[in-house]
Computed example of a mutant assay.
Amino acid sequence: MSDDMTISIDSEKYVLRRDGEGLQVGRRNGDDVAWLDTVDLSLLPEPARQALDRGDTSDGALLTALRGVVQAEVERGG
């Protein structure tokens, strides 16, 4: 994955961007992106990392992993 990817999670649009060994997760707000968190890629399950490599934003493993990231951000009050 070389460019930003947009993914829909529970009717919300999020943006994914590789950042070295991390994955930045942001929420689109018009033309801007509010970056929520950067997750170490090694923390994601292998199927989710493979989906990222393929650019498959509909993959169930990726969606489940990102729901967890988003939920953690909500619980932290982000």
Rank of each mutant, 00 (worst) to 15 (best):
R17Y: 10
R67H: 14
T38A: 14
D4V: 10
R18F: 11
I9S: 06
G55H: 12
R27L: 00
R49H: 09
T6G: 03
E21D: 09
D40E: 04
Q71F: 00
L43Y: 07
S11I: 12
W35P: 02
E75C: 01
T6K: 13
A61I: 00
V74L: 08
T6Y: 09
R17V: 04
D4M: 14
S42N: 10
R17Q: 15
D3A: 15
Q24M: 14
E73G: 01
V39Q: 03
L43M: 13
A34W: 05
D31Q: 12
L66C: 09
G68L: 01
T38N: 10
Q71C: 00
R28P: 02
V15N: 06
Y14C: 06
V15K: 11
P47C: 05
R18K: 15
G26N: 11
A48F: 02
D59Q: 05
G55S: 07
L44F: 12
V39F: 03
W35V: 09
L43A: 13
D59Y: 02
Q24I: 04
V74E: 02
T57E: 09
L36P: 03
D3W: 06
R54G: 07
R18E: 11
S2M: 07
V39E: 03
R76D: 02
D40S: 10
E21R: 14
S42P: 00
G60P: 04
S11V: 10
A65I: 01
E75M: 05
G26T: 11
T64P: 00
L52D: 08
L41V: 12
L44H: 07
L23T: 01
I7W: 06
R54C: 06
V74W: 01
L36H: 01
D40Q: 10
D56C: 03
V69C: 01
R17I: 07
P47Q: 04
V70E: 01
S11K: 15
L63W: 02
E73H: 03
G68Q: 01
V25A: 12
I7M: 04
A34I: 11
G30T: 05
D19C: 06
T38D: 14
V33N: 05
Y14K: 06
Q24C: 11
D32F: 08
I7R: 07
G20W: 04
N29Y: 05
D4E: 15
M1K: 12
V25T: 12
G78M: 00
W35F: 08
S8N: 11
T6F: 13
D31W: 13
R49I: 08
L16C: 10
T64H: 07
E12R: 13
K13P: 04
V33C: 03
E21V: 03
G78W: 02
I9C: 11
K13A: 14
V39G: 01
Y14E: 10
S11C: 06
G68K: 02
G68C: 02
I9R: 06
A48C: 09
T64S: 13
L43F: 05
